[in-house]
Amino acid sequence: MLKRLSLCLAIVASFISGATIARAATLDEILRKGKVRIAVVQDLAPWGFLNTNLEPEGFDIDVARLLAKDMGVQLELVPTIAANRIPFLQTDKVDIVIAALGANPDRAKSIWFSSAYALLYSGVFAAKNQAISSYADLAGKTVGVTRGNTEDLLISSLAPAGARIMRFEDNATTISAWMTGQTQVLVNTNTTAAEIAKNNPDKTIESKITIVKSPLYMGVSKGSDDLLRWINIFILTKKLNGDLNKISEKWFREPIPSDLPTL
């Protein structure tokens, strides 16, 4: 009898534990508590990083602060790494993830995604005085790329025969080659280009061609209907009034694309 009772209690406890893990944050709960918990990365500049005073900064940090301000609640930034972004939602450690998070069908089995609020992309970058608007314009130019990465595979199939593709063993060397004039063109991500521009104000680097777009989304727990609706209205409003553009210009020196997908 005692064993049976213990088994029953264990089953009940497991259901309670499961319910806690699966509990979805609601907008009303956040407003009642007066605080929103948002997961952010702190090791991926310029999306999120720690400045010299060990304070969080970055595009996603600014967006999180703006969201909390519009919601009218206190912001609790919860540091995370890429691997923990979804588990933090599933275990009720955070209410929202704003951490350079891309969407795919597999991830969508575990959490819900907002409309896109930003864009990570691979592209062709060069100095402002370089006239490049198509892949054909790469003919006769030296193009630097990191060997074996996504950009290497892409540009190898897209560049014209006259382009001289120079492959380097790591990203730092690829960047250094462009900085020192060894290459005229850099094939990399907008994140890398933004960091170059930030750390080298004397250099003019701009996006010439977008190769592959990877929209970024906010994440919430499955079942957070009202919270997700509010976030989508927030994103739409901030696109329309230019607030997201201001943050993007600050960190990436370019506006938010007008064709970001909505969900």
Rank of each mutant, 00 (worst) to 15 (best):
L31W: 12
L31Y: 11
L31C: 05
L31I: 11
L31K: 15
L31H: 11
R32Q: 15
K33C: 12
K33P: 10
K33M: 10
K33Q: 15
K33Y: 12
K33G: 15
K33N: 15
G34C: 14
G34W: 13
G34M: 13
G34D: 13
G34N: 14
G34K: 12
G34S: 13
K35E: 15
K35V: 15
K35L: 14
K35F: 02
V36P: 02
V36A: 03
R37H: 08
R37S: 13
R37P: 00
R37Q: 11
R37M: 04
R37A: 03
R37D: 08
I38W: 04
I38N: 07
I38K: 02
I38T: 07
A39Q: 10
A39T: 04
A39G: 13
A39H: 02
A39P: 00
V40T: 11
V40I: 12
V40R: 04
V40W: 00
V40F: 02
V41C: 09
V41M: 15
V41N: 08
Q42W: 03
Q42G: 01
Q42P: 00
D43W: 10
D43I: 04
D43H: 11
D43Q: 09
D43G: 09
D43T: 09
D43E: 09
L44C: 00
L44Y: 08
L44K: 06
L44F: 13
L44N: 02
L44H: 02
A45Y: 09
A45T: 08
A45C: 05
A45L: 10
A45I: 04
A45R: 13
P46V: 10
P46W: 12
P46Q: 05
P46S: 02
P46G: 07
W47G: 02
W47V: 06
W47T: 10
G48D: 00
G48R: 02
F49W: 15
F49C: 08
L50S: 00
L50W: 01
L50N: 06
L50F: 12
N51T: 06
N51V: 04
N51I: 01
T52P: 01
T52Y: 07
T52S: 07
N53Q: 14
N53Y: 14
N53M: 07
N53K: 09
L54Y: 13
L54T: 06
L54I: 10
L54M: 11
L54V: 13
L54R: 15
E55H: 00
E55I: 06
E55S: 07
E55M: 12
E55C: 03
P56S: 14
E57R: 15
E57M: 15
E57G: 03
G58Y: 11
G58F: 09
G58K: 03
G58D: 08
F59G: 00
F59I: 01
F59H: 12
D60Q: 09
D60S: 09
D60W: 12
D60E: 08
D60H: 06
I61S: 00
I61K: 01
I61R: 03
D62P: 11
D62L: 04
D62R: 05
D62F: 09
